[in-house]
């Protein structure tokens, strides 16, 4: 359905996304994992046709076979809501505080699908029911501030689902929520994707959330897709040094904080910090922070190397042969 071919986004000062290749099929649940500056949010914006005006785009982005790389706003407006919809991190600011929940969710149904108010109302009641909001008729009359954060995120999901999109992009949907609420929201997203046969792109820095939610993941660093494969396999046995470092740096709640001598255990770390876009190395973006480094890592971009049948990682160490 959705396809990216060597898709790149750059600004005057640097490259936000480099040679991204991605294919999203019906019903896929895909996690995009990365830290700040990894390009994961830029990727989401591009899939929504909302790349900033200042961006220079190359490569190809197609939806249902149609080339959308340089599509105009009108074409995108037809795609949005119906083919692809998005929910955001902050459920408070994404809803108009002066409009009742019902009116907000009814709007796309009336505007895009041409339903009457009565028809739209019926659909909204069903949608709110579907996303697990109790007593939908009463909630429709409420304003956003009368709902809790989790409820608001559910309303936003209902809004995104209103026109039956084939793909739902969730950008850090649980970051602003409390743990038990977040667990229920991720469960809801998985259930909805399953029941509707809808594809889900789950963008997050939270490895635990992505493990619960997705079948496949793409790990991003500095605008590159550095590793991809089935979620469970990648997390259990990472191939790219960055993925390894990221997983290692994550505190493990089951490991004791002190060793046998009463000395505190240190966490394994990745040295340094993510450099700014304009200062990324030309070759492998991770060079300079990588523990094992070849002499050409900093200058030559690493191609995808197959790890096994359905996994790949962009690392020279996996290539074996010097290019």
């Amino acid at each position: 359905m959705f396809e990216l071919d060597d898709f790149s986004v750059s600004f005057g000062s640097g490259t936000a996304l480099r040679y991204a290749n991605l294919e999203i099929r019906e019903g896929d649940r895909l996690g995009i994992v990365g830290e700040s500056g990894s390009g994961k949010t830029m990727l989401a914006l591009c899939l929504m046709g909302m790349a900033p005006d200042a961006a220079t785009i190359s490569g190809r982005l197609s939806i249902d076979g149609q080339d959308m790389t340089h599509a105009n706003e009108r074409l995108w407006q037809q795609m949005r809501a119906r083919r692809v919809a998005m929910i955001f991190q902050e459920p408070m600011t994404a809803l108009n505080p002066l409009r009742r929940i019902g009116d907000t969710v009814m709007e796309p149904l009336i505007v895009h699908d041409g339903l009457s108010r009565a028809q739209a109302r019926m659909r909204v009641l069903a949608l709110l029911e579907e996303v697990g909001i109790p007593d939908p008729p009463a909630r429709m009359r409420m304003f956003p501030h009368e709902l809790s954060g989790g409820q608001r995120q559910r309303v936003l999901i209902a809004l995104a689902l209103a026109c039956n999109p084939a793909l739902l992009i969730a950008d850090e949907p649980t970051t602003a929520l409390d743990a038990n609420v977040a667990l229920r929201i991720t469960d809801l997203l998985v259930r909805l994707a399953h029941e509707r046969g809808m594809a889900l792109v789950f963008i997050t820095h939270d490895l635990a959330a992505v493990a619960r939610t997705t079948e496949n993941i793409v790990v991003m660093y500095g605008g590159d897709m550095v590793e991809r494969g089935p979620t469970a396999q990648v997390l259990a046995n990472p191939a790219h040094p960055y993925t390894k470092g990221l997983l290692g740096a994550r505190p493990d709640p089951t490991a004791p904080a002190r060793d046998a001598n009463g000395k505190r255990r240190r966490l394994p770390t990745l040295p340094g910090t993510v450099p700014p876009l304009s200062a990324l190395p030309q070759g492998c973006r991770f060079s300079g922070r990588c523990a094992v480094e070849l002499d050409y890592c900093a200058t030559t971009r690493a191609p995808d190397h197959a790890v096994d049948a359905n996994r790949a990682a962009a690392c020279h160490l996996l290539g074996g042969v010097k290019p």
Binding site: E35, G245, T269
Partner: peptide, 14 residues
């Protein structure tokens, strides 16, 4: 902080 930086700061505190 990002996960990779978080570990550095935790180690520093220790």
């Amino acid at each position: 902080l990002d996960v990779s930086v978080q570990a550095q700061i935790l180690n520093l505190l220790m």
